[in-house]
């Protein structure tokens, strides 16, 4: 398997375009995955709801590309992007979203609980800040067992309201654990602007524990990746945890059914953030720097679209778990 380190060597020797094209591909895959999810919901093919990651792709991709396959992540209810960026296969993701046996969790988890040990994914979590302990515990194991793994804890700015986050950040800094707390500030705690829920300064909260607390433009995958790489390598060297705020925007609603959003945010605001689309931004840069032509990017998008359509087809055709599965796996 090609490693992140391989790619970074290439950047340093002047052939880094491969990495940025890879990231463009990953971000586009997440975007097109989510469009299919929305379509499945609209066509009433998907049970329940899903929380789309559209607009935030640069965070998951920029961070996960700084990790090795063995490194850990924990994710959130808005987790499809993290799971894909860490290496999940779209067909098994869709199968899970549809509650099928072929899904990552045999259909028992669904959209909000994708977990996959083979890609270091400790699980998406539907309790806000619910995975902060798990991520910190994975970092604790890594340190205790000397594995050199790093754990990344993704959470939205809504998790800043939960006390357990601060409890585990305190533990992580006391014990110099290799964990990166990645706060995706997408502006909205569900339907409430974060300024109505968050006193003071976000970074200052983490800085108070004595850990590096940084902020980055979450629509710029190159910036996210650069800073994530630095923090991850620092953690891997045993220098402890870090906190990274990625300022981004949830371009869609809280969930697929949240269509009429005027009561909590303006169309103008959505339009402004739409102009800062992270995928378009990287694409424009790739073209400007002559790393890729528009046609290459367009062809890549078409190819991914076909892959996603095939993955959906697989999931729709896949079988539901048999009724005998219902009480299996309660205990190990």
């Amino acid at each position: 398997m090609k490693t992140v380190a391989d790619r970074r060597t290439k950047i340093e020797t002047g052939t880094g375009a491969e990495l940025w094209l890879h990231m463009y591909r990953q971000m586009t895959a997440i975007r097109l995955f989510e469009e299919q999810v929305n379509e499945l919901y609209t066509r009433a093919l998907m049970p329940g709801l899903a929380h789309l990651y559209v607009g935030e792709e640069a965070v998951a991709v920029g961070v996960c590309e700084a990790l090795t396959p063995e490194d850990y992540i924990t994710s959130t209810h808005r987790g499809h992007g993290h799971c894909l960026a860490k290496g999940a296969a779209p067909d098994r993701m869709f199968a899970e979203l549809l509650g099928k046996e072929a899904g990552y969790c045999k259909g028992k988890g669904g959209s909000m609980h994708i977990a996959d040990p083979t890609t270091g994914n400790l699980g998406a979590n539907a309790i806000v800040a619910g995975s902060t302990g798990i991520a910190t515990g994975a970092a604790f194991s890594a340190k205790q067992l000397g594995t050199k793994q790093v754990a990344v804890c993704f959470f939205g700015e809504g998790a800043l309201g939960q006390g357990v986050l601060y409890e585990v950040m305190n533990l992580a800094q006391l014990w110099k654990l290799p964990v990166i707390y990645v706060c995706e500030n997408n502006f909205y705690n569900e339907y409430t602007h974060y300024l109505e829920t968050t006193a003071g300064d976000i970074q200052a909260r983490a800085a108070a524990f004595g850990m590096p607390a940084e902020s980055v433009d979450g629509q710029d995958v190159r910036a996210v990746h650069a800073i994530a790489t630095r923090l991850v390598e620092r953690a891997r060297r045993g220098e402890g945890p870090a906190f990274l705020v990625c300022n981004t925007y949830r371009m869609r609603g809280h969930h697929v059914g949240d269509i009429n959003r005027e009561y909590y945010r303006s169309k103008k605001e959505e339009q402004e953030w739409g102009d800062r689309d992270p995928i378009k931004r990287l694409g424009d840069w790739l073209i400007k720097e002559k790393h890729a032509g528009a046609e290459t990017l367009h062809d890549m998008e078409s190819e991914i679209r076909r892959e996603m359509e095939a993955a959906v087809k697989f999931a729709v055709a896949a079988a539901y778990p048999g009724p005998e599965e219902v009480d299996q796996d309660v205990y190990a």
Binding site: L122, I134, G137, A138, A139, S141, A151, V164, E167, N170
Partner: peptide
């Protein structure tokens, strides 16, 4: 003290940490 570990008074925090540690080899 590497195996008998005093924690802060943070029951949720160290219990959550234990869940993650249990998932990953301890």
């Amino acid at each position: 003290t590497q195996r008998v570990i005093d924690t802060p008074i943070s029951e949720a925090g160290f219990t959550g940490l234990a869940v993650g540690a249990a998932m990953t080899g301890l």
